[in-house]
Design a protein around this nucleic acid. Structure first.
Ligand code: MN
Ligand code: MN
Ligand code: MN
Ligand code: MN
Lengths: 219, 219
DNA sequence: AAAATAATTTAGACAAACCTAAACTTTTAC
DNA sequence: GTAAAAGTTTAGGTTTGTCTAAATTATTTT
């Protein structure tokens, strides 16, 4: 059984490695987890001793198969709780992350099975992220970053890859949500920003930072 | 903000003091919390420094007003989650305690407000224990221990004061639940056990230990 | 291919929450 | 009213997860 701290490290390694493939650096982890690199080194030694990660000093860390299994379980719990908060408790998508960050660590197989059932086995969380199945499978949908669209091209928002309230509140402000129909009106080469029309009405200019975090499918 | 450990101590002090009145001993706490008396002493010094308890060395501990406020908040969360688990996730009353013991420590005012609303502002948890209001008020209902009933007297089960799965499963087994109509058929003076009829049909003999933990109201 | 810079690890500390063993109070028994 | 027993606290450790400062390794520059 893992501690809350260990679980948070495992989840961070999973996310930074892009699903388990690439090796993750100490610094990258220290940034996402808001801890000092020295503390990360300590924890990696510990996770390695528990065979949850492959860790080669000075050369980064990767999840073992077991580590990956654990990561997907925590992500499943996190995303199911997010669905619960939005659909049942009327939270908005920018309010759920911090709470789900705590609830994901509650230990009970029965709880998560029943929660999944109660929610009707949802496939996606409120940010469009897929929910791993009980068996630990993750179905990614074909999708592209808004940044990769050309003039005139269209897409429907299916996912936003940043859970910080400030970012989500910004999207609320400009009127973008999951399901919004976007179209590229103009490209501004100077800074790679795009002018985007939302649901065929008002249009806004989005910075390249923002464009990288919004994902769309073909309409 | 209190840690999970601190919250568990505060809740235990509240319960052992019978709602905040009496002083609680180190040993009593060490038993309910399954820690050594020495560890309890440490924690009491700490809670005292935080003004959550009045602590006089060698003479027991009591909650301050602030400590009492905190205790009621945790108990409110615990009992609301128990209701959620039973009513929404189809847990049985003997499965909820351990999970609620974890969920009660999730920090979010909004969460608990919305949960309360989602559940329809329940007054009682699955064991018949009253749920403190948001303002921290606890309405106790008039009730008596089954042990205090005489021959022929009747009562409706409104509360059971032991959350251990083994005890609740025993009640399931003999067929007693909240709302059961009980009547004393016979008294066995030898060991203060009683023969009790359940819902006017089958009857069982209950030990005095068990009789002290079941509470009834007049039918 | 050094030297400089950046990334990472080790060493040594600390707070929280627990432990055992020893010392100290309070209570109970005589 | 003392002595034994019971209850409680203190002293000194351990583990977990963090930190800062120093040492080490890897990478980049020249
Ligand atoms: Mn978390
Ligand atoms: Mn999410
Ligand atoms: Mn608890
Ligand atoms: Mn209960």
């Amino acid at each position: 059984m893992q501690s809350t701290a260990e679980e948070n490290y495992i989840k961070a390694i999973y996310k930074l490695s892009g699903g388990g493939a690439a090796a993750v650096s100490t610094t990258a982890l220290s940034e996402t987890l808001q801890t000092k690199p020295a503390s990360v080194s300590d924890m990696l030694r510990k996770l390695s001793a528990k065979d949850l990660v492959h860790y080669v000093k000075y050369h980064g860390v990767q999840l073992t198969d077991e580590g990956q299994r654990v990561a997907l379980k925590i992500i499943r719990k996190h995303r199911l709780w997010e669905v619960f908060l939005v659909q049942k408790l009327r939270f908005s998508w920018d309010e759920v992350h911090e709470v789900a960050e705590q609830m994901e660590h509650v230990k009970s197989e029965l709880l998560i099975q029943r929660l999944d059932e109660f929610l009707g086995h949802p496939r996606l969380d409120p940010h469009g992220d897929p929910i791993p199945t009980e068996a630990g499978e993750l179905r990614e949908v074909e999708q592209r970053a808004l940044a990769s669209l050309n003039i005139e091209q269209e897409g429907v928002v299916c996912r936003v890859k940043d859970s910080q309230p400030a970012f989500l509140q910004y999207l609320n402000r400009v009127g973008i949500q999951i399901g919004s129909q976007l179209q590229v009106v103009d490209k501004i080469p100077y800074d790679n920003s795009l002018e985007i029309s939302i649901d065929k009405s008002k249009s806004v200019i989005l910075s390249s930072d923002v464009l990288e975090k919004i994902f769309v499918i073909n309409p």
